[in-house]
């Protein structure tokens, strides 16, 4: 790691102001992804602002029947929350499908959303990677890209976003609440937080520099059953090959794009009365596999159809 200065933020506004005033500043809360990347010098902050102990934790009902989850709430706390378990089980299921208990105890909601890709070429600093070294090229494009995206990729980047939690949040239509240095608070749908790679895969989110995620806000749960399913190479403690979150008629796919992929075509087909299998096939018409990751098409098709079926059964 490069040397850096460290401060523990006293309040959220102070944190965003410090971030705006300090070159090379980054927020840290759990640190489970940032430190991982700092050790490899993929991330090189000059200043860390610890927001882990700010009053951003806690889970509270919203007047509209939704739920507000503070950004520094640990993943474990969210997964175990009685309100989440009762009304947003897909969120709890998605969280416990990710990482390990130790990681979930440390990782926060905000950090989970902002975790960076697990693409092996992004992690290997001897290889070209447009996300890590813009303009150097994408090693995965012609490489061992079994786990690459099938939606929304570009020739500059074919990586996937690997958060499980974000897939559930996308299905639930969650909003992300952010605070800017100006003191202005803003909400953005989770699926708009992320940018597809295009020509600038190094720009990953719609956040402005120094914006701090303060909370995730869930609307009231949609009618119908909820379920999260993930397929992976190892039974636990492994990234996914594909995942699907279903919340009533809302469906999101994971590990298929550089963002949690809201399956709008599937949702429209389901609403029009299509079978789960037909509905997911509509979505996959827009997929662009690369060869080594062709299997993701049938995998997503089967996994999603089974999950939608099961959710329907639960919602009935």
């Amino acid at each position: 790691m490069r040397p850096f200065t460290y401060e523990r933020a006293v309040d959220a506004l102070g944190a965003v102001r410090s971030a705006a005033a300090t070159p090379g500043a980054r927020f840290i809360a759990g640190g489970t992804n940032l430190l991982d990347l700092m050790k490899l010098e993929i991330e090189q902050p000059q200043h860390l602002i610890d927001v882990g102990r700010l009053d951003l934790a806690g889970i509270a009902p919203m007047p509209d029947g939704g739920l507000r989850i503070g950004a520094s709430t640990s993943n474990s706390t969210v997964a175990a929350d009685p309100q989440v378990l009762a009304r947003y089980p897909v969120l709890s299921q998605a969280i416990v499908a990710g990482g390990s208990p130790q990681l979930r105890n440390k990782a926060t909601v905000g950090g989970n959303l902002l975790q960076r890709t697990r693409c092996a070429y992004f992690y290997d600093t001897t290889k070209p990677c447009n996300k890590r070294a813009p303009g150097s090229g994408c090693s995965a494009l012609e490489g061992l890209n079994r786990n690459a995206a099938i939606f929304g990729a570009s020739t500059a980047c074919i990586a996937t976003h690997t958060s499980d939690m974000a897939v559930a949040l996308a299905a639930l239509g969650a909003q992300v609440e952010t605070l800017a240095a100006s003191g202005e608070s803003r909400t953005t749908p989770v699926i708009d937080l992320y940018r597809l790679p295009g020509d600038t895969p190094q720009i990953e989110t719609s956040l402005a520099a120094g914006d701090l995620i303060t909370a995730v806000v869930l609307p009231p749960p949609p009618a119908g059953g909820q379920i999260y399913r993930k397929a992976r190479d190892r039974a636990s403690y492994a990234g996914g090959l594909a995942s699907v979150a279903v919340a009533g008629g809302q469906v999101a796919l994971g590990m298929v794009a550089l963002k949690p992929w809201r399956a709008h075509a599937t949702e429209a087909a389901l609403a029009a009365g299509a079978s789960p299998t037909e509905a997911i096939a509509r979505e996959l018409e827009g997929a662009s596999p690369l060869g080594r990751n062709d299997f993701k098409l049938p995998l997503v098709a089967r996994l999603s159809a089974a999950a939608i079926q099961e959710a329907n059964g639960r919602g009935a």
């Binding site: 697990r118 992690y123 290997d124 001897t126 490489g143 190479d233 039974a235 636990s236 492994a238 990234g239």
Partner: peptide, 23 residues
């Protein structure tokens, strides 16, 4: 093996999957 670079793809324990308890 990534034959372009002569290197192995999996370079840590998140990528190289030794069995865990749940397996």
């Amino acid at each position: 093996v990534d034959v372009r670079y002569g290197s192995l793809l999996n370079q840590d324990l998140a990528q190289y999957l030794a069995p865990v308890q749940a397996d």
